[in-house]
């Protein structure tokens, strides 16, 4: 066991882990941050996406020890300081961008990373950026719409509610 320390959602976090302990396991099992989900074992579904030092990574494909000293952001730390939903979260609710909710934390974290890099993405850029995030419920329609709306673009012309 090796001690690992990092900052998670702005708070210091530490724990004893093995070399093989994944960041997703550390977050879920040791810190109790179960909002980060694990939906596959081949690094493709993206339900586990968190930010490490501001960059989107798949927390199931990085060891906890590799995040030593890093700033980690998870879905639990995304809401506004007063507890209200942030702009992206609110857009997902407003536009019904989630159904079962399992892929949602990864979707929101990927969307946040996208809008940081590209504040006004096109529809094609949003779809391309979500290549590593699978959703089985929404058909992506309302996820793409929500992200475009969160970027401040008018989505009124897009078909359906």
């Amino acid at each position: 066991m090796t001690q690992v320390s990092m900052t998670v959602n702005g708070k210091a976090a530490r724990g004893d882990v093995e070399g093989r302990t994944l960041l997703s396991t550390f977050l879920r099992d040791q810190l109790g941050l179960t909002g980060t989900h694990v939906g596959c074992d081949t690094s493709q579904c993206g339900a586990c996406v968190v930010h490490v030092d501001g960059k989107a990574v798949k927390s199931c494909t990085i060891f906890a020890l590799e995040a030593e000293g890093a700033e980690v952001a998870t879905i639990e730390g995304q809401a506004n300081a007063d507890g209200s939903l942030n702009v992206i979260q609110q857009a997902f609710q407003d536009h019904h961008g989630l159904q079962c909710g399992f892929c949602t934390p990864g979707m929101v974290m990927s969307a946040a990373a996208l809008l940081k890099e590209n504040p006004k993405p096109s529809e094609a850029e949003v779809r391309d950026y979500l290549e590593g995030n699978l959703c089985r419920c929404t058909g992506y329609h309302n996820i793409v719409k929500a992200i475009l709306a969160a970027s401040g673009q008018d989505v009124g012309a897009i078909a359906a509610e």
């Binding site: 690094s43 993206g46 996406v49 960059k55 989107a56 990574v57 798949k58 494909t61 990085i62 990927s110 990373a113 996208l114 950026y129 290549e131 590593g132 995030n133």
Partner: peptide
């Protein structure tokens, strides 16, 4: 290559 999260690692 891959997707954005993969490209970051």
């Amino acid at each position: 290559i891959g997707d954005p999260a993969v490209r970051n690692r």
